[in-house]
Nucleic acid binder design. Structure first.
Length: 260
DNA sequence: ATGGTCGTGCAACGA
């Protein structure tokens, strides 16, 4: 399985389908589709044998799950998911489905923008409610392989950014954000890709600006957090850095996890 | 050089 912030599914349909054809993944949690459901290029994926569940409300956010091992019990949003905007409403940042016996969530955690921005408060509240929902799922069905996949917009360790000095006073590395991430781990989830992709300096995202990718100046902000039952089945993981190269690449690379 | 790059949708906003 894999998680990938594609930064527009319509702008990148051909790159995504080409990647699926060569990567042989059964399930992909996709974030930032940047389209409404009616605009989603469903047939491009069904033609390759994938079922599709997408939730998009506008040109912002948008999450999807692609699966060629079944896709059932689709759930839009998680219980108590905080909202944003005027009027306050849940955004298209979470979709869940059961694929080949694994409960998969595709999550696009709010960016936070700046430490003094209301969006940062929203981000922390979103993470706390996700932790509460996740704890509930683990308690409800401890035997269920469960994967929280997505763009968490948090670099949990200093080695997850190229230079901590560049992030002084910025989001993604603040203590409250890192505490919120670790609360998910304390709840029983495991960052299952990290042992197979050890840092420092191993990243999943590189800004388009300032030649960040060729200069190897990135961030590790995309994760698969596995329940104990899922973590027990992980046999490997990799970050597909090649997919960040060339014209028309997303600013995020896919994170791939192999399961037994 | 107070920007630099993208995507969406057509001005400006989000990342």
């Amino acid at each position: 399985m894999a998680t990938w912030n594609v930064n527009s599914v319509r702008a990148r349909t051909e790159r995504i389908t080409a990647w699926l054809a060569r990567s042989e993944v059964d399930v992909v949690a996709v974030q930032e589709t940047k389209c409404k459901d009616a605009q989603f290029p469903t047939s491009a994926f069904t033609e390759l044998g994938y079922e599709v569940a997408h939730y998009g409300l506008s040109q912002w956010n948008g999450v999807a799950i692609l699966s060629r091992v079944g896709l059932d019990d689709v759930e839009i949003g998680f219980p108590e998911q905080p909202g944003w905007g005027e009027p306050v409403a849940a955004e298209a940042r979470a979709i869940g489905a059961t694929c080949g016996g694994v409960r998969v969530w595709s999550l696009y955690i709010p960016n936070g923008r700046e430490l003094d921005d209301p969006h940062y408060v929203y981000k922390l509240e979103w993470l706390e409610k996700l932790r509460a929902a996740g704890s509930g799922w683990l308690a409800e069905r401890p035997e269920q392989p469960l994967a929280l996949c997505g763009d968490f917009n948090i670099a949990p360790e200093d080695g997850d950014v190229w230079d901590m000095a560049a992030f002084e006073g910025r989001t993604h590395v603040s203590k409250p954000e890192r505490d919120a991430f670790h609360a998910l781990l304390d709840a029983g989830f495991t960052d299952v890709a990290r042992p197979y992709t050890p840092g420092p300096g191993v990243f999943t995202y590189w800004d388009y600006q300032q030649l960040r990718f060729p200069k190897r100046e990135g961030m590790r902000i995309d994760f698969v957090l596995g329940s104990p039952a899922l973590a027990a089945r992980v046999t490997g993981a990799r970050i597909d850095r090649e997919e960040r190269k060339g014209k028309g690449a997303s600013d995020h690379a896919p994170v791939i996890v192999e399961l037994s």
